[in-house]
Every structure is written in structure tokens, then in C-alpha cells.
Design a protein around this nucleic acid. Structure first.
Lengths: 215, 215, 215, 215
DNA sequence: CATGAATGAGCCTTCATTCAT
DNA sequence: CATGAATGAAGGCTCATTCAT
């Protein structure tokens, strides 16, 4: 998943173009996180990317293509998390909590390069909401969703000994649904209650996760 | 569940005024569900409510106040769900699944009177996202959140025999967090995967909920 | 000029109607002074007059008729000032300074009944400006202007011994113009520099007025 | 008096930008003179300037900033008048009368480039009135006022022989006040009585001005 | 007479997007 | 490629005025 092989959809793009795209996406992600999708203007994004508004349109067809681009980039980031979880190298609780905390931290320092930062929780909600009306965004999100689904599924299915959860195939869809909802729901909690104590979150997960395994 | 008796906070309002407010809120809820908060214009809402744009402002101070009004109405609807859950009159799984299905159904027939309907899942995401930037919306959501928190907390804490979950006080915050996240997350799943089989949802909940109780 | 004989244009009006008109005009004058002609809404005026917006239209044809009414009322107030000046009962400097100070005072206590208060200086500017575009207002102002012109003229012309200025007829138009400009200009200074020391004003007038008389 | 060299405060602005600003200001000045500050809409001004409404906002933050810009331009025009007066090159009466007549003439031919023209008298009243409620406008007017104050003060104080009035320092504030009021008042007369004979004005000034000097 | 709900035109402003340079 | 000026369609909101009650 490294950049040796260009990312999905970027097959033919030159290095320069890719750099520009990333610069724009970084700026957009920062602006969207700060002001929301509708609150951030193309002009603002252009300024954040230190280029003219017109140039953005050379790389992206419109504002919602920016969301598409941002979401697509996330797919790669996610891969890392799943590798960790699946390899058993790390307690899944840690991964989730870290992931949660990372988002919070990102929100604080606006200088971070967002292309390897997780999506701001509020932005995720906006994207998901938007996806129900905007096919371009829906498409991007479908990819992400699928990736998560596969990752979660394989982690759940993998034998206990191999760092998985040993979930029987029959229970897999149900467990996946619950786990997915729980993870998504955490994003909503994050938005509603940004001061949530990470320790409580960890405690809650440590209590809940084991309970969700086969008895 | 109907509005024979004026709703909370509307004590002093005339019947006519209350009816107008509800008409506006119904129209707004429909428009927001269909086009999103930013996508639905006041003009569109006015038309849906069959009145002039200016008139809306006699009843609501601005667009965000419409969300405030919509969310506030939901608080009452929620009360019913919690009564059911707490009274033990009904399996909580049924309540959740029904609630879930109700939303889906509402989305289909646009003619339904929304003031008796649960919020469209997409709209919920938008509202939550917006709440992080709009104090008016945040306030309304705080009320709702609090109500849910109390309801969930008392259900969890109530002794097993009394239709509760018998959760020890020490575990309450953690369990509440998990449950809350799970419920919220279901809304996100609903948006992302509207075709989810209710039967799977029920199965998943029947598997998960008992596991989240004291061993 | 007392109310024994109804004021100009009020010939046929009943006492009740007159009272209503005055109440409206009072409210309007207060609102206009506070927020300006364009800044004060009919709704605001109605509330200040403790009546419904619709009722105002029973007594006045529109917003600019309110200005007409306000200006017309001033004609009577002015009469008093001129009587003083002409009778020689009082130093004209005192009259002008008092008049000036009265306006400032009015601005402070909003409770005063404006129908016997001088027009707020800012409002005067607005009215004069408006008069160049609104014939209704122009008409009212013409009356006021004429009255002032006559009053000023007769004071200037009256023999010195009779409390006047003993201005020769040949110089009258010129002197009237200067005096008029000076008086009007004071209104503008009042708006631009509300903190002007009344003592300085008195000093200035005591220096200038005598110089403007026949050598 | 032309704008060959960019005006004060425009040092860094490109020639194109400056031209656009002037075009907008010209249009605004014309529209404001014709319909008043509140009567002229941004759309109308944009049309007069032959551009889209949105473009105005690239050059001015809002409607009040247009007034600010218009007033600021006047400061420069005023400088010329004061130079004349102070240099003694010209009878101050002439300067005032010319200035007065210039305004009247401008009002007639709407085609004149307003950036070289004095403010329409009616517009001045509106601006002064508005300044008491709009800080942006107040700021612009403060600058103008100050400039006039300095100019008038130095002319009054300058020795008689040097084309001044030789006013003793002790009398300066009072004389300045009177002169200022008289000049301002002339603007009001201009609005109220546009047909005033310039000859009468000249006569009046020639009579009054010398009288306002040290005996 | 009086009310106040209702209208609807219009206002200022923003912003995604385009295009001449 | 890149710029940034320019467009023009909305958008949210206000308010003078009307009219059914």
C-alpha cells in the first residue's frame, strides 16, 4: 500500500500532479475539519493550499470531488490499523482508543499534514450524511466501507490464537454489524462529547469487547 | 403521541400558533430529510408548509431554530420508547429494531406527519455535525442527549427483575458509553446501508445485548 | 397656536383620533431618533405606541406620512421659540443654546413625551435628506421652513429697541440666509460632535451674533 | 485633481484594482445621490458600475465601506480648496460659492465622473446622519472632519497679511465652531432650497465673513 | 375600531465555478 | 500550468403593507 504503486485511480498521474492533488486535499481536509463542508469555501481551501481557486478545478471537478479524494486517501490509512489488529501485534482496544485520541489531537494542531491523519469526527458525519445525496461521495465511501468490512470480518473470523476473535461464520454478519455500529457510534460520541475521558473509553472497551466474543 | 395537549415549553402559545409551528416544523423536517440542512432553503420549507417565507420568522428566529424545534419534539417521542424499555413491557431489542425500522419506513412515504415520526437518520448525522458549530443546535441536542442518557442509565441500573439490566453503579458509565455508541452507530449504519435486513439487526442485538450485562 | 383651534390639517378630526395620532407620532419620533428612519420598523413603532401595526395605517397612509406628521407638529413648538426671541424677553443666544441642549437632553431620556420635544438632530438630517426625494416629506418641511423664515425675518427686521436686530430691508435676505445656515449647521455639528461643550457654543454665539448686526 | 498618482492609502493597490474601485465608487456616488443610501441597492450600484453585484465585494467589504471610500476621496478634493484659501490666492468667498455651485451643477449632469466632484449635498446629510449609527461611516467622516478642522483652523489663525484671518488663539475654537456650522448649514440650505441664487449667497458671505473677524 | 397573522418583494451578501490572460 | 477577476444564481432574512376576523 506504499506509494511505489500509485494509489487507486491515480494510475496515470505524474508525480507533480499527485503532489498538487495531495496539497489540495490536505488543505481541504483542514478547512472542512475547521469549518465543515458547507462552511469552508473553495476560496478558503485555495488559500490554505496556497494556490488560486481556479487551479483546484484542474485537479478536481468540484467541491464534492474533494470529499471523494479525502475519503479515498483514508482507505490506505485504515490498512495500517487493520494490519495491527489482525497481526495481533497490539490490543485492539489500544488501536481503537489511539485512533480515537488521534482524531482529537489532530483537531488541536491545525498544522499537521492531514493526509496521514484520520478524518475529523465531525467531518465523517458530514460525509456520511452527504453520501446519501451525493453519488460521488457515496461511491468513495462505499470503497472505504467495504475495506473496513473486510478488515473487521477477517479479524473477527481469524482464530483466537492468530490474534483474531475466533468468531464462527454463522455469527459473523451479526457481530460485524454490532462492532461496526459501535465503532461508528464512537465517532458520534466524539462529536457530541469531545471531553470524554479516554480512560473511560478504554475501560468501556475492555469491558465490552471480550463480551462480544464467542462464550 | 398526538399533540392534543400542547407540547412541553409551549404552554403559553395559542393553539393557532402551535399549529403553525408544527406545520413549519413538519415541512422543515421533510425538506431537511430530503435535501439536507444546507440543501433545503427557507423558501423551499415555506412552500412545503404552504406559507410565505417571511411567516416562518414569526415563529422561528432562524434556520437553526427549526432544527432546535425539530429536535425538541423528538425528546417527547423518545420518552415513549424509554417508558417501554423501562417498564419491561417489551423486549428492548424489539424497541430498538422497531425504532430502526420506523425511520426507514418514514423515509419512504413523504406524506407522513413528521412530528410523530423519528428523525431521519441522515438528518441526525447532519444535526450532530452541525451541533459542533452551531450553538443553537447544540443546545437542542444537549437536551436530547441528556434525556437519552438518563433513560439509558436508569434502564441499565434498574434491577434485572424490574425489567432493567442490573448494572452495578461502578460499571454504569462504561456500559452507558458502549450502549450509547452502539445505538448512535446504528444510525450511521442506517445511512450507509439502508437495505440492512432488520432480521439481521435483531439477531445481532439479541446476541450482543445479553453479553453486555453483568456476567 | 394652542389646541383650541385644531392644528393644520386636523380640522375635522375628533379628539380621540387626535390622541391616537399623537401617540403614534410620539412613538415614531422616539423610534426614529433611536434607530433612524430606515432603521425603525413599523412593527417597532407600533409596539412603542402600544398598538397593532395595522392600526397605524388607519391614521397614517404610510411610513413617510409619519415624518410628515412629526414635522408638522414641530411648527407649533417653534412658535414658542420665536415668540421668545421676538418679544425680546430673552437673549436669543440663550434660546439657541437651550434649544441645542434640549435636543441633547431628549436623546438621553427616552421617556420624554416627544410631541413637545424638539426633533433629534440626526433625525432632522435624515428628514431633510429624505425631503429631496419624498414629496410628502418635502411638503411638511416646506411649511416648517417657511415658518422659520418668517420668524427669523421678523426678528431680524424688528427695530433694535423692540428686541429685534434692526436689520435694514436690503440686507434682510442675506442676513437671513447666514443666520439660517448657521442654525442649521449647528444641527450638523450636534450630530458629528455630540460632546460639544455648551459653554463654547454660548461663547461662540455671543461673539458671532452681535457681529452679524448692522454696524 | 485627476488620479494619475494613486490616491492616499492606495499605495499598494494595482492600477487595475484602483480603477475598479473608482468605478464602483463613482457608480455608488451617483446612485446614492439619486436614491439615497438606503434607496440605492447594491444591485443597482453594480449595474451602474457595469459589473456583477458579487464583484463589488471583492473591493469593498460592504455597503458602508462604499461610503467610507467615497468620503475618503473627498478629503483630497478638499485639500485643494484649503490650499486656495490658505494661500490667499483667492477670496474665500469665491471658494465657498464656487464649491456650492459646483455641487449644484454636479447634481444636474449625471454623467460627470463623481470622483472629481464634490459630494451631493443630500448625500452629505445622509452620511452625517448615518455616521451616528454606523461606525464604518463614522470613521470615514472623522477623517474628513479632522481635515476640515485643521484647514479651517490654520486659515483662521494665519495672520491677516498672509491671507488668513488673524484670529487670536483664544477665540479660535469659538470662531471655528461658528464657521464650521455656517459651512455645514449651507449644505442643508442647498438641499432645502436648491434654487437659491448664488449671487445672494455671495452677498451674504461678503457681508458676514468680514464681520466674523477680530474687530 | 382594532388586531396581528400573513404576504411577498426585495435586500445584502456569499460562493462554486469559469475563463481571459 | 496557473492566476484571480468576474459571474450570477441563490440564500437567509426583513419589513411595509394588507386584510380576515
Amino acid at each position: 500500500m506504499s506509494r511505489d504503486v500509485p494509489a487507486t485511480g491515480a494510475a496515470k498521474r505524474g508525480a507533480r500532479a499527485q503532489a498538487q492533488r495531495d496539497r489540495i486535499l490536505d488543505a481541504a481536509q483542514r478547512c472542512f475539519a475547521e469549518r465543515g463542508f458547507h462552511g469552508a469555501s473553495m476560496a478558503m481551501i485555495a488559500e490554505a493550499a496556497q494556490m488560486s481557486p481556479g487551479l483546484i478545478y484542474r485537479y478536481f471537478a468540484g467541491k464534492s470531488e474533494l470529499i471523494h479524494g479525502i475519503v479515498s486517501r483514508q482507505v490506505e490509512l485504515l490498512a495500517d490499523d487493520f494490519e495491527e489488529m489482525e497481526s495481533g501485534a497490539r490490543d485492539p482496544v489500544d488501536t481503537i482508543v489511539d485512533n480515537y485520541c488521534a482524531c482529537m489531537a489532530d483537531a488541536d494542531d491545525a498544522g499537521a499534514a492531514p493526509h496521514d491523519a484520520l478524518l475529523d469526527a465531525t467531518l465523517i458525519l458530514e460525509i456520511v450524511a452527504e453520501s446519501s445525496r451525493d453519488p460521488v461521495i457515496a461511491e468513495a465511501l462505499n470503497l472505504l466501507d467495504q475495506r473496513i468490512d473486510v478488515g473487521l470480518g477477517s479479524w473477527l473470523a481469524r482464530p483466537d490464537a492468530a490474534g483474531g476473535q475466533g468468531t464462527p461464520a454463522a455469527l459473523l454478519p451479526a457481530r460485524k454489524l454490532i462492532l461496526r455500529a459501535l465503532l461508528d457510534g464512537l465517532k458520534m460520541r466524539q462529536v457530541r462529547d469531545p471531553d470524554l475521558d479516554p480512560a473511560l473509553l478504554r475501560e468501556a472497551l475492555q469491558d465490552a469487547l471480550p463480551r462480544l466474543r464467542e462464550a
